[in-house]
Amino acid sequence: MWNLITNHLNDLVAVALFVIGFADLLFQKNMIKKVIGLNIMDSAIYLLLASQGYIKGRKAPIITDGITSAQNYINPIPTGLVLTGIVVSVSVTALLLSMTIRMYKKYHSLDLDYCLMMARKEG
């Protein structure tokens, strides 16, 4: 059992972080906390991806000393996916934060539920 946990520590942490971030994004009322939750959730996925691509004892996929056999390098694709994913989550975060600013200017609150209520009252 202990062996299983230590072998899959990265995956377990990633899933735990994903659940924390997801719950944050879903249940927090404060917009800033929601955005933090979003970033925790996305980072968890990147951690999972990066740790799945890493193979113990191998090197970064850059040819050194003329060794071209793929057996010596880690899988480069997950790293590329992480980079793409980071770009996506940065742009989503930026958009969400800018909308939060707009909402704050209008309703003077960061509480999404309160703002929804105020918006309903407007009719």
Binding site: M103, A119, E122
Partner: peptide, 8 residues
């Protein structure tokens, strides 16, 4: 104002 909240 309310479309911003809806969009969020």
């Amino acid at each position: 104002g309310k479309t911003t909240v809806t969009a969020i």
